[in-house]
Write a protein that binds this DNA or RNA. Structure first.
Length: 592
RNA sequence: GCGCCCUUAGCUCAGGUGGAUAGAGCAACAGCCUUCUAAGCUGUGGGUCGCAGGUUCGAGUCCUGCAGGGCGCACCA
């Protein structure tokens, strides 16, 4: 249960009851009515803005309305206090019995606690990673991968039907470059000395084993020596083979992070069967019919020199009509469609597959592309489709505070796989979500494997392991104690009377609200912050037992009390596990 | 030059879509171990939310301008 939603319904009922009694006028708009977390100083469990929302409509002073509603709300069995504060807030305090019921709910639901029907099964497409199939993934891709995957899981938990998608950029100039680079390595593998890798190519050493494999096939009986073939022929082969091999490598990198997409969508498929009948061509025709395309000449960017600028007549999309700054070209001078044209067709295809809500996760270097893509989605869906683009900022890889340079040549990108192998997938996944997506992230390889509270991964894992440890010790202290999923909710929870114990339950009970609000905001990072918060509250409670043995979870000779406290401990482990499940991190039962 | 993102405690960052006296952690200082894991906890100090205006009952949050940092800027994807 999201208790804020529950309380909102109660407040709403009281407003309607008051209306029935003539205390408030009829026809009130309750759209903005909310029940939220109050500031700490309020010392309350929930706060409603009801009176502030209604004041103008009802033509009454907000504090008057607040007093009127507070009096009614105070009679509700779950509410022990309803007070007015500030300009007209209503602060609510809930009964301990209400909170104990929430703990029972946690225990009954297990890791499914927090599951929501908010999304109502609506289809959402989350496209993430979509790295060019020209080489292995680097750490920056890893951030997008983790972010997208966690967001997808979060949306599923919130009741959406999510499709995880990867867009393969397997068309255009870069495929020729890939083919040529691979062919060069192939000639080396066949014993030639073609010299240094050509300019405008991918010098990466990861192509060498692929070329060696192809060379081996060439030498085998019946094999083809591609050097004897025409350029068009070997280019097609090496492009196709290169993409296939690179996608295998990328999928392996993602697999090491526990990430698997539902759909791999090929850009090339959008350009088939040919230039004039492909889905890209159909998309352009649609925009043409709508009057969103014209032929014109683009002005060079101001205040910036472009070396080989030449005015060119070309097909332009009227992006400015949909909020972009300039109109955007759809066709290259060669006659080929631009990447942007393909991308419009791609999003049109998503929409036609039934996705009104589309989320794209992009790297920082694509920030300048957002406006035109949103403009295109608005145009191509007649305003019916909604695109949210999440930009993931750069990841700075450090070791003990010093920047790391791992690759020996060509580029300063650090391979994702190297980092996953060094610190583990769980650490990578967690750390990638310890910052908002639009803020740069420092990833210190040394710190994230430390066993100290400065390491958030450890801190949260430790809370889970500690809870499991307590459960193990309880079994030793009371060998016949039933800690199963039916026995724990049946425990006498009135023995949980300490304010910190109830306080911890309140944090656990916040999980459903966190899931829903994080899902709506498309912000999975909130999960890690929440888990850190739960862990801190649990560690604090644990430590109260160091000074006072009566406050420990396991109290010898006090079976019922121990059982009640174990219910809380198991509840903590359960909610932590539930949160970790969303971000794809395995909860640990012990850390030794 | 233009666009997008960022600017919150000495440092690293939260801040639940406009609410109340802006919160954590680190660092500093003062405490807590014959313990269910001290791999942790408790307390204290620390802020003109980059600057200046505006919108309204109310702004860290929305709008405008300015400053600083990052990313990007036809015929790559």
């Amino acid at each position: 249960m999201n208790y804020f939603g529950y309380l909102r319904d109660i407040v709403k009922n009281e407003i309607e009851a008051a209306t029935g009694c003539g205390e408030l006028p009829t026809g009130l708009d309750l759209g903005a009515l909310a029940v939220t977390q109050p500031p700490e100083v309020a010392h309350a469990d929930a706060a409603s803005n009801a009176a502030l929302v209604l004041a103008r409509q009802a033509k009454q002073a907000p504090r008057e309305i607040a007093a009127l509603l507070a009096e009614r709300l105070a009679r509700h069995p779950d509410i022990v206090a309803a007070t007015t504060a500030g300009p007209g807030f209503i602060n609510l305090r809930l009964s301990d019995a209400f909170w104990r019921d929430r703990l029972r709910e946690v225990l009954a639901a297990g890791v499914r606690y927090g599951d929501s029907r908010l999304g109502g099964g609506a289809e959402v497409n989350v496209e993430y990673v979509s790295a060019n199939p020209t080489g292995p993934l680097h750490v920056g891709h890893g951030r997008g991968a983790v972010f997208g995957d966690a967001l997808a899981a979060l949306l599923e938990k919130a009741g959406y039907a999510v499709t995880r998608e990867y867009y393969i950029n397997d068309a255009g100039e870069q495929m020729r470059v890939l083919a040529d680079s691979l062919f060069h390595r192939y000639r080396e593998a066949m014993g030639e000395q073609p010299g240094p890798v050509p300019e405008r190519s991918y010098p990466g050493e990861y192509l060498i084993p692929v070329a060696a494999k192809i060379a081996e096939e060439s030498r085998a009986p019946g094999g083809t020596d591609w050097r004897t073939k025409k350029r068009e022929e070997w280019r097609e082969f090496f492009a196709n083979r290169g993409v296939a091999e690179m996608m295998d490598a990328i999928k392996a990198d993602l697999g090491a992070l526990g990430i698997r997409h539902d759909t791999f969508f090929s850009e090339r498929d959008l350009q088939r069967p040919d230039h004039d009948t492909s889905e890209v061509a159909e998309t352009v025709k649609q925009l043409m019919r709508q009057g969103d395309i014209y032929t014109g000449v683009l002005a060079p960017p101001k205040g910036m020199t472009v070396d080989d600028w030449e005015p060119r007549q070309q097909a332009l999309f009227r992006a400015t009509r949909f909020g972009d700054d300039i109109d955007r070209p759809l066709q290259k001078s060669s006659g080929e469609w631009t990447y942007f044209a393909s991308d419009i067709a791609y999003h049109r295809d998503k929409f036609r597959r039934g996705f009104r809500t589309m989320i794209d996760v992009w790297g920082a270097d694509h920030g300048g592309y957002v406006k035109r893509m949103k403009a295109a989605v608005a145009a191509i869906t007649g305003g019916q489709g909604d695109l949210d683009v999440k930009i993931c900022q750069l990841v700075n890889v450090l070791k003990d505070g010093q920047p790391v340079r791992m690759s020996k040549r060509a580029g300063d990108f650090i391979a994702l796989r190297a980092v996953v192998d060094e610190v583990g997938k769980d650490v990578v996944r967690f750390i990638m979500l310890t910052r908002r997506n639009d803020a740069p992230l420092d990833f210190d390889l040394a710190r994230v494997v430390e066993q100290s509270r400065e390491n958030p991964v450890f801190y949260v894992q430790y809370a889970h392991a500690r809870a499991c440890s307590v459960r193990r010790h309880a079994r030793e202290a009371f060998p016949d104690l039933d800690l199963g999923p039916t026995a724990l909710p049946a425990a006498d929870l009135t023995l949980l009377a300490d304010a910190d114990e109830i306080g911890l339950i309140k944090r656990l009970a916040y999980w459903p609200e966190l899931v829903e609000s994080a899902a709506v905001a498309h912000e999975p990072h909130r999960i890690t912050f929440y888990l850190h918060d739960v862990a801190a509250a649990f560690h604090a409670l644990w430590n109260k037992g160091t000074g006072d043995a009566a406050l420990r979870f396991i109290v010898a000779e006090q079976r019922s009390l121990t059982l009640a406290r174990l219910a809380l401990v198991v509840g903590v482990a359960s909610v932590v596990a539930s949160g970790l499940a969303v971000i794809g991190v395995t909860p640990l039962e012990e850390l030794r």
